[in-house]
Nucleic acid binder design. Structure first.
Lengths: 127, 127
DNA sequence: GTCATTACTTACAAATTTGTCTGTACCACA
DNA sequence: TGTGGTACAGACAAATTTGTAAGTAATGAC
């Protein structure tokens, strides 16, 4: 993304990652926030402040940064209304909507295996 | 994961993330390498060295670290043979196998949208 | 006794990600 | 003139992730 020592393995790996279909996709939703932001948006259109309320402890800075990145990647559409106080709404692009069923499955995996782990931990394999 | 200022938003967010089904799952396969490692393993059983060859520029250190983390999360099973030179084989656990169909879909998303982006870029929306 | 092979480990350093805190712009309303 | 609401921006700092470089351990082959 930024200027960097060419031919470091870091850059070479980055290249590998954008060329592979799987990691190309994974990269778009990587990091701490992107995937949940997309998921919470879902089919809705939310204002910045509404979105913020979905995440109890996210900072405004982080939310802004993530939304900008998602906008850059054309996963989120940002609409600014010329009003005071400002109103800005966010919604998913068609491209991002295609992620939703995948998120459902990931979520199902999480639900299932989180429960299984809890069970196992109770039976004495405590960490 | 580590000791840390309690009640920083960092920790509070971490908690939020492990409690949410979606991010619980996303976290298991997050980072630069985990998802591809799992995908490359697939249904196979590979030695450390074989796995390494799948990623042209990964360092041994990174591969080791990621495999250990995956082992900890019970997504990968590690088998050590008492031989010299050492032989260690890695394979997915049943839990991790359930990820594979999801990876397929992510991969399909990547393939499609990478191609679309390429097209769009050629038509003049170059970045 | 030296070397090759394999799967690592360790100390260190660079880069990226995430968070803290403060400040701004705009206008309506009191 | 001052306050409130909304959606940010910027400087700085902490934490995590990823990479660099070098070394280890065991043993069988030469």
């Amino acid at each position: 993304m930024t200027a960097r020592k060419e031919n470091s393995t870091y850059s070479l790996n980055e290249k590998f990652i954008t060329e592979c279909d799987l990691t190309y996709a994974a990269n778009k939703i990587g990091g701490r926030w992107k995937i949940v932001i997309l998921d919470k948006l879902g089919n809705r259109k939310l204002r910045f402040g509404e979105l913020k309320k979905e995440f109890p402890y996210i900072t405004e800075r982080m939310l802004t940064l993530q939304l900008r990145a998602l906008e850059q990647d054309e996963l989120v559409k940002r609409t600014v209304y010329a009003e005071i106080p400002p109103r800005v709404e966010y919604e998913l692009t068609p491209m991002a909507l295609e992620f939703l069923p995948i998120f459902c499955q990931l979520s199902a995996w999480g639900k299932k295996n989180k429960a299984l782990k809890k069970q196992a931990d109770l039976k004495g394999n405590l960490p």
